[in-house]
């Protein structure tokens, strides 16, 4: 017994010396600042939209990693590299299809640099992990990039037949990266929670956008799937109502899953818990009504 506690003590001293700790000393604000420093390229920032940092994804990554028994430095590298990949992919989503001749001079340059900025951020993710000798995480994230782009093409090119595959692709596009990190540390509950949380967030955003614009890419795809040929270009009132009903049912279903999952996590990150509640408040009234009706 004495020997065991001695071994335990010396191991923890060694870990402390190497910067290892079960208690995490990393801070989201510091990571965010480091991320800003990494993506700030003097020429790019003058000509392209400054990359948005998805704070929810940052928070999810933090929650996944905070209780893992690895050094704080490593945790930071994992969060930074995953966020760099996310920013790279989001940046490439901003590349438009307009012909060069139809663009203003500045817009063409901005598009060219947007392409390169995404490539640059991808390169940084690889370099960051190569610098800390982490080939397995390079592989994990690369696999996720592959998967996300497969789903993006299927979604964008309208290859998806059926509402389930559509929702599955949307979910993978939103959460594959974060899920791959939780999968890497075998945290199946947070993996599922991340997937549901990010899909819920996306559906709420899409719903809001649809109510505002009356037409979005997702709702157009949904209409193509839900209604067969012979339909007009513009969705009828009945179609709109039905599509909103479908989305609301999904929102409600995902919300229930998240509630179940949060109950199964004994010590959930408080910030994440609060954020989940905030997201629930963003759910539109009609979805809440379905939930109450059961």
């Amino acid at each position: 017994m004495v020997c065991r506690s001695f071994v335990k003590r010396t191991t923890s001293v060694k870990k402390r010396e190497q910067g290892w700790s079960l208690v995490s000393h990393i801070h989201i604000s510091i990571i965010k600042e480091k991320l800003h420093n990494l993506i700030t390229h003097p020429y790019l920032i003058k000509h392209i939209e400054y990359p948005a940092i998805d704070e929810d994804k940052l928070l999810l990554l933090y929650s996944i990693l905070e209780s893992i028994d690895i050094s704080d430095e490593k945790k930071e590298q994992y969060i930074l590299s995953t966020m760099l990949v996310q920013i790279a992919l989001d940046t490439h989503d901003l590349v438009t299809n307009a012909k060069a001749g139809q663009l203003q001079d500045g817009d063409e340059k901005s598009r060219q640099l947007t392409v390169l900025a995404g490539d640059f951020y991808s390169g940084l993710y690889y370099r960051l992990l190569a610098d800390v000798n982490d080939i397995s995480m390079i592989k994990t994230l690369a696999h996720s990039i592959k998967q996300i782009n497969e789903h993006k093409i299927a979604y964008y090119h309208k290859e998806l037949e059926g509402i389930e595959p559509l929702m599955d692709s949307l979910g993978k596009i939103e959460s594959s990266l974060i899920q791959s990190v939780s999968g890497f540390f075998s945290n199946s509950v947070l993996k599922e929670l991340s997937g549901n949380f990010l899909l819920l967030k996306r559906l709420i955003q899409e719903r809001k956008l649809f109510c505002h614009e009356r037409s979005t890419f997702l709702f157009e795809t949904l209409r193509r799937i839900a209604f067969t040929k012979g339909e007009k270009d513009v969705a009828s009132k009945e179609q709109e109502t039905y599509m909103l009903y479908l989305i609301d049912r999904y929102i409600d279903h995902i919300k229930q899953k998240i509630e179940q999952l949060t109950h199964s996590i004994p010590a959930m990150n408080k910030q994440l818990e609060t954020r989940i509640q905030e997201l629930f408040y963003e759910i539109p009234f009609s979805s809440k009504k379905y939930a109450e009706e059961g």
């Binding site: 790279a88 590349v95 392409v115 995404g118 991808s122 690369a142 782009n149 093409i153």
Partner: peptide, 17 residues
């Protein structure tokens, strides 16, 4: 362009794998 961006990113990911 969008298909080209996604294809490029896909090939890049395969290359890293």
């Amino acid at each position: 362009n969008r298909i080209a961006m996604y294809t490029g990113d896909y090939i890049f990911a395969r290359s890293l794998e």
